[in-house]
């Protein structure tokens, strides 16, 4: 019975979601065999979802990706060298329950913090890269995230490299209070120097990017890309609804909305991200100028 059932499922998912799957219980299916799309609520074989870069084979919804998964997706194989992996803060973390929560998350996610930074090549072009992971404290920015991002930017400035940052964050980290807020200024200042050195910063916004991260480095890219349908905004939708006492329109604060209002350059589907980044890096590489003379940029 079970093999027949699986075969039927496989055949149907091949037709993507064009034909709705009959409603059947998955309660007896082995753990993790199927993944439910959070958007269209259909179940798909996990292997198939993974092979499709965690994009729903039916509706095209971009599911959340881990930082390591993201790196595997965009960086040339074996090219990644992580920077400041073991960084920890010397700040006081005495907010009730906070350090226990960090320890528990480290164990459950295998991550030390909500961002991974490093250098890699993308289609042969060297770049600094930072990737946030929303599984770790909602990708929030505390002292370690702020410091790792700042160090990555400073490294890029010193080595005259571009920097690419994939954001996924609920904003500044509440538990570290004012220190978290100040990380917005710290990362912004580091980007100013990178910018003044005439270097390229590509900001890639993924679901969700809100609060203090939107109000700092996420919005400061020379080029800003976003994954389809990602929630991107300063205030959270709930806070806005409570303030204005009305329901928000469909699609508000989604990537498509931001594109329409002029805040991002392009929406890029996940399977095209690597090629898009490669192309942008190539267009900004000094060797792309071929026989033309270098046009010196105004230095502040």
């Amino acid at each position: 019975m079970i093999p027949l059932f699986q075969e039927r499922r496989q055949k149907l998912t091949q037709f993507k979601a064009l034909r709705p799957r009959p409603k059947t219980s998955t309660a007896s299916a082995p753990e993790g065999l199927y993944t439910r799309c959070p958007d269209c609520k259909q179940d798909y074989l996990s292997d198939q979802v993974a092979a499709n870069y965690f994009v729903c084979p039916g509706c095209g919804y971009h599911m959340r990706l881990t930082a390591h998964g993201r790196l595997r997706l965009v960086a040339d194989k074996g090219s990644i060298r992580e920077l400041n992996a073991g960084l920890y803060t010397t700040e006081n973390l005495d907010f009730p329950g906070y350090s226990e929560k960090l320890t528990a998350l480290e164990a459950s996610t295998g991550l030390k913090e909500a961002v991974i930074t490093g250098v890699c090549t993308i289609e042969g072009h060297s770049t600094v890269i930072a990737v946030m992971d929303s599984r770790f404290m909602m990708g929030s920015m505390g002292s370690v995230v702020g410091e790792k991002v700042s160090r990555a930017i400073e490294y890029a400035t010193r080595r005259r490299l571009p920097i690419i940052i994939f954001t996924a964050s609920g904003g500044a980290r509440m538990q570290e209070g004012i220190v978290s807020l100040m990380q917005m200024a710290k990362t912004g200042n580091a980007l100013a120097r990178h910018h003044q050195a005439g270097l390229l910063y590509i900001s890639c916004l993924t679901h969700p990017t809100t609060g203090g991260v939107t109000a700092s480095f996420a919005s400061l890219g020379d080029i800003i890309l976003a994954e389809p349908r990602a929630l991107i905004g300063f205030a959270g939708p709930r806070v806005i609804e409570q303030t204005i006492r009305q329901t928000l329109p469909e699609g508000f604060q989604r990537s498509e909305f931001l594109l329409e209002h002029g805040f991002i350059d392009r929406i890029v589907e996940r399977h095209e991200m690597r090629a898009t980044l490669g192309r942008l890096l190539r267009l900004h590489s000094p060797s792309a100028r071929k026989g033309f003379a270098y046009i010196s940029h105004p230095v502040k």
Binding site: M184, A185, G188, N189, L191, A192, H195, T214, A215, S216, F217, A218, S219, L220, G233, F234, A235, H261, G262, F263
Partner: peptide, 11 residues
Amino acid sequence: GQGEAIARNLM
């Protein structure tokens, strides 16, 4: 662009 405006000022 509330987020962009704040970010720009910080920078």
